[in-house]
Design a protein around this nucleic acid. Structure first.
Length: 620
DNA sequence: AGCGGAACTT
DNA sequence: AAGTTCCGCT
């Protein structure tokens, strides 16, 4: 009966804490949604449902009303709100859960992975619906002013009683007046009231994670050593309070110092950390939404998502950046317990995380290495010429007209709806719900090239149909595609690992779509064993390029990727060029993965890591 | 319902 | 940049 959602799913608190630019405290819709989601009072209006990050809007009108109230847009309605929500698709913040009305899903996966690659996901437990656990939320606020901490602490959560009907009422109906000067706050905000940072926000996750988890195994991070960086963990960490499985984030709070290190694991790193500078300096354009994750939480989350990741074919690329991380191996034959790996990270690497972007002038001291930025919004492709009114018939025609404008001078693919989709992240993207994923993963090269806007679009639609009707066979040539009509592939996939690795460890994660030939073969023989290193290397080089590339114009993000390389390397390079870094995922990566100042070192580390992995894989 | 283009607003 | 508003299409 109780779905995770009902029970009060823990939400990623980090998700709430976007730093808002110093003066602007405009709440963002997704943020707002999260707010509602986390409050019990609104469970009848909107609530988590089922899958990770999946939620259902039970009362669209009400949600719209609330949103309108918050934004002082009385005219708001679900139609409009949903439009806004749809804009998130491309940004990958959300995606629609097909087949389920009013149901959407947050994409936490990649974010987590990207941000917490160092987390050990080796252990097997995989709590399904638990989203990442938040933490830190109020702890780390951006100094300047983060009034927007919407609901910072979950007082009500902690003491349900508090939020009695009165409060609730107050919260809900009363405020809609934007007119009054008084109402600066949203309903929610008022309702929630003050947050006291002093309190552990973590409590917010009521019962989310059963204390039963063997912390050390699950959450163990590399390097038990003391963390000079400031990630001093409270001792109690070891034995979490039953009530709050997630100890307060160690992140230094008020001072505004975020531990520069990513995690304790990284703590060993000798690298001098830059003190977090709360400053406004951070307010670069990228500052849009940064979050910080609590490693522990993330770990948990990752645990939960291991499967997911597996299924989604998340690109291991992210891991490359963090050689010291342990990649989950779904089916490791007989090696010791997975957790062991954690212990002896033979790799004394200084994690790449500590490294900064060399080239860029961006303030290297991002508040936290964990921050990530959501992807940039889609581009507006407005190329609608002036008055022609072909609207009805011309979906295609417009495409053609579009041609010249792109920077893609050479390519000259006529219309290109460049969606951020295909970048690195996208691959891992949750969105994969459909065939498209398979296409990308399996067919790669060619598919990409032809992924023109139009195609894409149709593709999607077809997919929808596929899901809706249960037949998409025409499109999906993919061998794997199951004709089943399950609307929610995500889940589907989730439950059923696409390719049960037989004795071979080859982590699915390592299936780089890059190499068609290799990835595909899941032969029992273990074809993939060898390629592993190779893959890593390739990835690595790619990454390096990417990094070297530094930040370049973001404008390019929308470019169509791949001009048609056959060569893997070449292709990779292209990807780097195009997607790397700019579009959504890339951006994240860029932020998260500081280029190695010491690439050389990194390289060797990588090698070692690779070697290790390979060894582990030797089972093949 | 849901999607997404386009113009417009903050 | 992140919606908001409007709207045609499926």
């Amino acid at each position: 009966m109780k779905t995770p959602g009902d029970t009060g799913f823990a939400f990623p608190e980090w998700a709430y804490k976007p730093e808002s630019s110093p003066g602007s405290r405009q709440i963002q819709l997704w943020h707002f949604i999260l707010e509602l989601l986390r409050k019990e009072e609104y469970h009848d209006v909107i609530a988590w449902q089922g899958d990770y990050g999946e939620f259902v809007i039970k009362d669209p009108d009400e949600v719209a009303r609330l949103w309108g109230a918050r934004k002082c847009k009385p005219q708001m309605n679900y139609d409009k709100l949903s439009r806004a929500l749809r804009y998130y698709y491309n940004k990958r913040i959300l995606h629609k859960t097909k087949g389920k009305r009013f149901t959407y899903k947050f994409n936490f996966n990649k974010l987590v992975l990207v941000n917490y690659p160092f987390i050990d996901m080796g252990s097997g437990r995989v709590p399904q619906s638990a989203p990442p656990v938040p933490t830190g939320g109020s702890h780390f606020r951006f100094p300047p002013s983060t009034p927007s901490d919407v609901l910072s602490s979950s007082e009500e959560l902690r003491s349900p009683g508090m939020f009695s009907s009165v409060a609730r009422r107050m919260a809900r109906g009363s405020v809609s007046d934007c007119s009054d000067g008084t109402s600066t706050n949203s309903e929610l905000e008022e309702a929630v009231g003050a947050d006291e940072r002093g309190v552990g926000p973590d409590r917010a996750f009521r019962g989310l994670l059963p204390p039963r988890l063997p912390h050390d195994s699950l959450f163990r991070v590399y390097g038990g050593g003391p963390n000079p960086a400031g990630l001093a963990r409270p001792t109690h960490r070891v034995h979490p309070d039953p009530l709050s499985p997630f100890p307060v984030s160690p992140l230094p709070g008020p001072g505004g110092l975020l531990a520069p290190t990513l995690s304790p694991a990284l703590s060993m790193t000798p690298t001098p950390h830059l003190p977090y500078t709360p400053s406004p300096s951070l307010s670069s354009p990228m500052m849009g939404s940064h979050f910080s994750f609590n490693p522990e939480d993330m770990k948990h989350y990752l645990q939960a998502h291991t499967q997911s990741v597996y299924n989604y074919h998340l690109s291991p690329r992210a891991f490359l950046h963090y050689p010291n991380i342990i990649i989950p191996q779904p089916h490791r034959p007989t090696l010791e317990k997975p957790s062991h790996h954690l212990h002896g990270p033979p790799l004394p690497l200084s994690h790449s995380l500590s490294q900064q972007h060399p080239g860029s002038m961006d303030e290297q001291q991002h508040p936290s290495p964990f921050k990530f930025k959501l992807q940039p919004p889609p581009l507006g492709r407005k190329q609608r010429e002036a008055g022609s009114s072909l609207a009805a018939s011309s979906s295609s025609s417009q495409a053609s007209s579009f041609s010249g404008s792109g920077h893609i001078s050479n390519a000259g693919p006529p219309k290109i709806k460049v969606e951020p989709i295909s970048d690195i992240e996208s691959e891992e993207e949750v969105e994969v719900t459909d065939i498209s994923e398979e296409d990308e993963l399996n067919h790669n090269d060619e598919e990409r090239n032809i992924f023109t806007p139009t195609v894409r679009r149709h593709h999607n639609q077809l997919n929808n149909h596929h899901q809706a009707n249960g037949n998409g066979s025409s499109l999906s040539t993919a061998p794997h595609s199951h004709p089943d009509d399950d609307p929610d592939d995500d889940e589907e996939v989730f439950k059923t690992p696409a390719t049960p690795p037989i004795g071979s460890p080859a982590f699915p994660l390592l299936n780089l779509k890059t190499e068609p030939g290799q990835a595909a073969p899941i032969s029992p023989g273990g074809t993939r064993c060898i390629p592993l290193k190779l893959r890593f290397k390739r990835r690595w080089s790619e990454d390096q390029k990417m990094e070297a590339d530094g930040e370049r114009d973001e404008a390019e993000d929308k470019k169509v990727r791949a001009e048609g390389e056959e060569e893997v390397e070449g292709k990779r390079a292209v990807e780097v060029e195009n997607g790397g870094g700019r579009a959504g995922g890339s951006v994240i990566l860029g932020l998260m993965l500081p280029p190695a100042p010491t690439q050389r070192r990194a390289s060797s580390e990588l090698q070692r890591a690779t070697a290790q992995l390979s060894l582990e894989n030797t089972g093949c």
